[in-house]
Nucleic acid binder design. Structure first.
Length: 513
RNA sequence: AGGGCUGUAGCGCAGUCUGGUUAGCGCGCUCGCUUCGGGAGCGAGAGGUCGGGGGUUCGAAUCCCCCCAGCCCUACCA
């Protein structure tokens, strides 16, 4: 076998041992996912608490990036943050019939406090519709109090049977928007508006393409009239429900007696919505971009944009190299990455890795952490007034080692990040296209979902829950959503892929996380 | 919740079947010297409730019981 001359050959032979091993995706995708999280120092399983995770600083910093961008978008659309109790009186949960049925199996309940049994147990919130409904009832009495647009950043707990880091943990961090409106039309507009906020965020900030759609009756939120969602394709062809936006109708308004007096003086129940995204997004980020060398981060969610690795041998070189590193960092520090009309200013985050270990070891480490840009500064570079640049992933934003005049590099840095961001989205979209198929026969369908395989399949469906369940039972694939206008193939009638009965349009089917 | 696999140092593992002195190995970690543009070399070190509890035994990482946790497959699930 011919030996590759590229450095990658040597690297592969040494992946176990120093640091941990990252299992290649083709070998074992779930193991790869866990390896990336461990080696990227994103999180670890709590172990001492079932199903929970410890989010480590680098992982949490990504969540903070996500939070900050979304928070600005919520405020931009008129929402205000508030905070409600973690514990909810058990009786609240039971007030909305469908809601309690949906959540009862996964509730954690506090039965004792202060050394005594509680008269009425508290539920640890799995979501806050009920307790927020209670307060909405107190806050709303007139149409002048509407719309009421509230968001909460919080943790919630759902006792899931099976957990996976970031994707489904017992406790997770999220935001939940809760709004109340005087008409159903207005509430529906809000539901759509926030779904689009999520969709835009996923694509623009996370560089994660999504399909926007409507959940089927069996997949919708417990207690909602309907649920909109964004579904993101992962590298293994499975779908990740990355965000949901629910039309709650008047269900919770009735359950919690949230009434308002209209302009005409009539009493009516409010129309409510709720919408949320969670730390699951971090899992989606990992499975959208990362590779066998570890984490890959789009610049807009990267806690660190660039790492500078000083290269030197002799003591007298050291000072000059460190000085150059400090100068380059200072120049990069000044670069403003803020988006137009942003509520917050964002500057380039740079780390100079001056630890006394060999450069190669640093390269591997920062690659595993997903830092977009690596800069090497050595005596030769200083002599030539240049920097050596290597992007985390080869794209149009940069390929291989580039040697660039320092001033040009600084001047082009923001553009480089923007292009890299765009390239990651382009690559993800291309992959989505290759994973997306239009299927018309059940044989094709069975083949596409054989074993552990999954694709994004556009198929006709007769619209019945029975067929939906049959598809799931036979293939483990589920109807992810009925696409919104502009998503997926243009609607045209056809025949259900399983039953042959008439279908008005194709729906998205995939295995799901 | 059912089935399977697993739990020994930070990470990855051997040892368990067939019980027996101070529980090993690789990497990582600490110190020293030489090194430093893709995971350095040599030398000297540190680091362990063998997941937890109970039992059998002269003696348990090893055998038995219970529990906890993780991974995979079902089932369940915004």
């Amino acid at each position: 076998m011919a030996k590759g001359k590229g450095s990658d050959q040597g690297a592969k032979q040494n992946t176990d041992g120093i640091g941990g091993k990252i299992t290649p995706r083709e070998e074992d995708y779930p193991q790869w996912y866990q390896d990336v999280i461990r080696e990227g120092e994103l999180a670890e399983t709590a172990k001492v608490v079932k199903g929970c995770m410890v989010i480590k600083p680098h992982g949490y910093a990504i969540w903070e990036k996500i939070q900050r961008d979304l928070d600005a978008r919520f405020k931009e659309t008129g929402h205000r943050n508030a905070y409600f109790p973690l514990l909810i009186p058990q009786s609240f949960i039971t007030k909305e019939a469908e809601h309690v049925e949906g959540f009862a199996p996964e509730l954690a309940v506090v039965t004792h406090a202060g050394g005594e049994a509680l008269e009425e147990p508290y539920v640890i919130r799995p979501t806050s519709e009920t307790i927020i409904g209670h307060y909405f009832a107190k806050w709303i009495s007139s149409h002048r109090d509407l719309p009421l647009l509230i968001n909460q950043w919080a943790n919630v707990m759902r006792w899931e049977k099976r957990t996976r880091m970031f994707l489904r943990t017992t406790e997770f961090l999220w935001q939940e928007g809760h709004t109340a409106h005087s008409t159903h039309e207005e509430a529906r507009a809000e539901v759509e508006r926030m779904l689009n906020v999520y969709g835009d965020f996923a694509e623009q900030v996370m560089a994660m393409p999504v399909i926007r759609g409507v959940k089927t009756e069996s997949e919708k939120f417990a207690g909602a009239l309907s649920s909109l969602c964004i579904e993101a394709p992962m590298q293994d062809g499975k779908a990740l429900q990355a965000g949901t936006s629910h039309d709650l109708g008047q269900n919770f308004g009735r359950a919690f007696d949230v009434q308002f007096q209209s302009e005409e003086g009539k009493l009516d129940y409010v129309w409510q919505t709720s919408w949320g995204v969670s730390t699951r997004l971090v899992g989606g980020l990992i499975m959208t971009h990362s590779d066998d060398a570890g984490l890959v981060l789009p610049p807009r969610v990267a806690p660190i944009h660039a790492v500078i690795v000083p290269i030197w041998r002799k003591a007298h070189e050291r000072d000059a190299v460190f000085e150059a590193c400090a100068r380059i960092k200072a120049s990069l520090d000044e670069i403003d990455l803020s988006q137009p009309r942003s509520r917050y200013r964002d500057f380039v985050e740079v780390v100079v890795d001056d630890r006394p270990i060999r450069p190669g070891a640093k390269f591997y480490e920062w690659e595993r952490r997903g830092v977009p840009v690596r800069i090497e500064v050595g005596p030769k570079d200083i002599a030539k007034g240049q920097v050596c640049v290597r992007m985390r992933v080869d794209t149009a934003a940069g390929t291989g080692k580039e040697f660039i005049p320092e001033a040009d590099f600084i001047a082009g840095f923001r553009g480089r990040l923007d292009l890299y961001q765009a390239e990651l989205l382009r690559i993800a979209r291309e992959r989505m296209e290759t994973q997306t198929v239009t299927l018309d026969t059940w044989d094709e369908f069975l083949a596409a979902f054989a074993g552990d395989a999954s694709v994004f399949a556009w198929c006709h469906w007769d619209g019945t829950a029975e067929t939906e369940a049959a598809i799931k039972e036979q293939t483990k694939a589920t109807i992810r959503c009925v696409p919104l206008p502009g998503q997926g193939p243009a609607p045209e009638p056809g025949k259900c892929i399983l039953t042959g009965k008439p279908s008005p349009q194709r729906v998205l089917i995939a295995k799901a996380y």
